[in-house]
Design a binder for these strands. Structure first.
Length: 260
DNA sequence: ATGGCTAAGATGCTTAGA
């Protein structure tokens, strides 16, 4: 298999971010770009703009909130959406999309925020993560062992994945049930591609408010997870912090992995 | 650090993010 560049990026509205996303693709030439929080309907998804750059795309959207996409050089096949976990509102939200691409089973995921520990949406978050784990097991059992999952997991796996653990006491994203749910997903046989690099914080999200980015107050909540056979090919993994700066950035930066 | 930011739908506000 030739070398590959894969990336995941929560764009916080694709309509608001499209010029930046297209420019990023031109400059970095990814083979696969996984997007979250597109916040657009399937009808409004800019398929043609990606096609002009030579990319296919698959999108699962609902309109105002959520929305996930796979943008790739190779045609995504066997496109499937999910998960069928109703939110407390009763709606099944557009947070999961997987497809076969480049000989892998690729998923773009946007885990629910959870709002507050103990809130009905917190329970939904945990149920959603459990359902995602089942989906990954189904993919493996269905002859798709080469899993690559990218997305916004809304969980910081350890205290060093937030700028100040004390600031997160009692908060979502750091609670034990959330971390256990993430561990259970990894335990299906996946490796956190950025997890082995302890040379820098590896933050992928910085709040818009109060100059958090400028002050280095971030969180590592976006991940690229890969089956061992893929993870063994990892050459380099990096966060494109440059994309968190400039005009009208997303509050998340792209996480990029180069596979040999 | 219980949020002095951002985005979007229908607005001069609300909901949501994390």
């Amino acid at each position: 298999m030739p070398s590959m560049r894969v990336a995941t990026w929560n764009v916080n509205s694709l309509a608001a971010r499209l010029p930046r996303v297209l420019d990023w693709i031109r400059r970095h030439d990814p083979d696969i770009l996984l997007l979250q929080e597109t916040k657009c309907s399937d009808q409004a998804f800019p398929t043609a703009a990606f096609a002009e750059l030579g990319y296919f795309s698959a999108h699962h959207g609902e309109g105002r909130w959520n929305g996930v996409a796979i943008v790739s050089r190779q045609t995504p096949a066997e496109i499937a959406t999910g998960l069928a976990v109703p939110a407390p509102s009763g709606m099944a939200e557009a947070r999961y999309l997987d497809a076969s691409c480049d000989g892998m089973r690729v998923a773009s995921v946007y885990v629910p925020n959870g709002r507050e520990v103990g809130h009905p949406y917190f329970d939904y978050k945990l149920r959603w993560m459990a359902a995602m784990r089942e989906r990954l097991l189904d993919n493996q059992a269905g002859g798709h062992p080469l899993l690559l999952i990218g997305g916004d997991f809304n969980v910081a796996p350890s205290d060093r994945d937030v700028y100040d653990p004390a600031a997160f006491a009692g908060a979502t994203h750091v609670s034990q049930p959330e971390r256990d749910a993430l561990d259970a997903i990894l335990a299906t046989g996946l490796q956190d591609l950025a997890g082995r690099d302890s040379s820098q914080p590896g933050f992928t999200f910085w709040d818009y408010r109060q100059g958090f980015f400028r002050r280095g107050l971030g969180m590592r909540i976006d991940f690229l997870l890969a089956a061992p056979a893929l993870a063994a090919r990892l050459d380099r993994v990096w966060v494109d912090r440059e994309e968190r700066g400039g005009m009208r950035p997303s509050d998340h930066a792209p996480l990029v992995a180069e596979l040999t």
